[in-house]
């Protein structure tokens, strides 16, 4: 016991960040184990991108116009990628609400662990889960004709999406810590996530929407991120007309910077709100 307590105090000066990282790793490990042992969650993660790809590629795709000669599948996959990560990020909220409801959060709060690890471990696990979703989507996309312009663009687009999903995860986390039942997280977030996902440039060109909706659909963050991802993926293969009408007009660098600004803004705001919420939980 003596050795234990001296071990802890000696780690105090230099080791604060070190412990935060180790605690985050411990929590991430726990969360991943938990995810893997809930096959229904994994199944949703596997099946959802496949279903959406097939649905839009073969059912709705034929009726979607205004593509300026761009192959619809190349337009579609970046859109579904954003939709996949946005929906999967919900896990963060459900899982935290579940931990809160079952009293597990209180156990964590009574331990000398880093508080940031509760969120860090959560979003780390959920980001891996999201990366898996993107890989499955990519495989499905290739099978139905998706062809990115180059690999670095594709990888950068993937990272951009994962980072954006991480920021959104913190929004789900805030809801998860506020409503106290996993079902309620869905009810509370669906009315926000659904219009952001579908009133966007994800599935159809914004040009084809009624004019009152175009302003929102062009400038809202989900569209900005989709346009950036698309721009990275299409690279030089996009014509000036396609850029103008389908990618928000701006160049790739500008789109990426705008996406990062949204990502950082959303992440910081919700991160701070989560920390405050966690500190003020009424147990």
């Amino acid at each position: 016991m003596t050795t234990t307590s001296t071990g802890i105090s000696s780690a105090g000066t230099n080791g604060r960040l070190g412990w935060a990282i180790r605690d985050t790793a411990a929590m991430a490990g726990r969360n991943l184990r938990r995810l893997m042992r809930q096959p229904e969650q994994i199944m949703f993660n596997l099946v959802s991108p496949i279903m959406f790809t097939l649905l839009f590629r073969y059912v709705f795709g034929g009726a979607i116009g205004g593509l300026q000669g761009l192959n619809y599948v190349n337009f579609l996959i970046p859109g579904i990628a954003v939709q996949t990560v946005l929906f999967s990020a919900g896990v963060t909220g459900f899982a935290l609400a579940d931990d809160l409801q079952k009293g597990f959060i209180n156990r964590l709060r009574s331990l000398p662990m880093a508080r940031s690890a509760v969120f860090g471990g959560r979003v780390a696990a959920d980001t891996l889960n999201n990366a898996l979703g993107l890989i499955i989507l990519l495989a499905t996309g290739f099978a139905v004709g998706f062809r990115p312009a180059n690999v670095p663009g594709l990888v950068l687009a993937g990272l951009l999406l994962l980072l954006f999903a991480l920021a959104v995860s913190l929004g789900y986390a805030l809801v998860g810590l506020s409503v106290r039942s996993p079902e309620a997280v869905n009810a509370a977030t669906f009315p926000i996530i659904f219009p952001l996902t579908f009133a966007s440039s994800a599935f159809v060109p914004v040009e084809t929407m009624p004019s009152w909706l175009q302003g929102f659909a062009t400038h809202q963050p989900v569209s900005v991120v989709i346009n950036a991802a698309r721009s990275l993926i299409l690279g030089d293969t996009a014509t000036p007309e396609q850029r103008d009408l389908l990618l928000g007009g701006s160049g790739t660098a500008s789109l990426v910077l705008q996406s990062l600004a949204w990502t950082i803004g959303i992440g910081v705001v919700f991160g701070l709100l989560c920390t405050r919420r966690y500190r003020n939980l009424t147990a």
Partner: peptide
Amino acid sequence: RRRIGLAGQYPAVDES
């Protein structure tokens, strides 16, 4: 927190 143990009103074990 380094010196206490807490067993709450409902068991806080991770079922999975």
